[in-house]
Design a binder for these strands. Structure first.
Lengths: 159, 159
DNA sequence: CTCCTTTATTAGAGACATCTAATTAGAGAG
DNA sequence: CTCTCTAATTAGATGTCTCTAATAAAGGAG
């Protein structure tokens, strides 16, 4: 019965899912390259994960996520994407930095917060009437350091 | 020359700052209680931090942050607060959960993202014309699972 | 088949952060 | 001063994740 994974293990699960999604074989070498760790580290991790039935690991053959591992990886990925999108789309953070931050923070976003963050993004970015004006105002504020009088006026006209 | 702290050490610095702010003496026992670790763990941490001149630690006397340690702690706190506020004020996450999530994620928020997040919160919560309407719409969306037609219409009147 | 190269694994060590158990220091009661 | 209690420290162990160095397996070139 698995109830928790360390951030490290979650990273491996997420990476395995990515590889699978791209139809790349998940080899020790490949994972090691992508995660910037040495091969023995990967072997250690795969053994750990297979003890928990999150991956199917047989020496010298490509690694496969189990159904359980896939679910877990997908979950990590959702958290990653929610955070990354928020940073990029709302906060206008540089995509590389956003990805890095998301990659670290993803392990600590609780289910409730994830759900809210996702809904927030939907609310803002999938508004049936197009992107809300305040997003523009926010971008202006980021850039100039002050609020756009014009947008401020327009945005509040209806309030 | 200190360039980085582990999340753990950042937590101690933050906690020390809190104690100081409340004028409570920072003893091993107190820190141990507050951080839910045993006393030897605290001693270990204080030794580590004092090696880096982040705290003044002399056996059997109250622990003090150095100027450097204070700065670092304050920085952690800023990240904590930005995240917590976002979760509470924007995403309406339960305050306890928000605090927990913030406490974990705070260690991984880059300076750029912090700056943007803080500005975002200012922009939204310190709007000179009061809280923007879309926040209400968002709360509605969280609660009902769908957009409020009324607010949608009003919010867009000016766009 | 033998040699070489690449890939993977094992063995062993180290950093970090935690614990338990044992010890020491200090403070207050008598 | 001695006894006792609490606070603090030391010693030693553990789990996680990483590394390097050494070894093993597998696949191709000849």
């Amino acid at each position: 019965m698995v109830v928790k994974q360390t951030p490290t293990m979650e990273d491996y699960l997420e990476r395995l899912l990515m590889l699978q999604a791209e139809n790349k074989p998940a080899t020790v070498t490949e994972i090691s390259r992508m995660m910037c760790v040495k091969m023995p580290t990967v072997v250690y991790a795969m053994k750990k994960l297979s003890e928990q039935n999150l991956v199917e690991y047989n020496k010298r053959s490509p690694i496969k996520l189990t159904r359980k591992g896939k679910r877990w990886g997908a979950n990590v990925f959702r958290r990653h994407e929610a955070l990354r999108h928020f940073l990029v789309e709302i906060l206008n953070v540089d995509p590389d930095i956003a990805a890095e931050d998301a990659c670290k923070m993803e392990h600590f976003l609780s289910p409730v917060s994830l759900e809210r963050l996702s809904k927030f993004l939907d609310f803002v970015l999938k508004c049936p009437r197009g992107k809300p004006e305040w997003l523009e105002g926010l971008a202006y504020y980021f850039e100039k350091g002050e609020r756009s009088e014009e947008l401020l006026a327009r945005c509040q006209r209806g309030g």
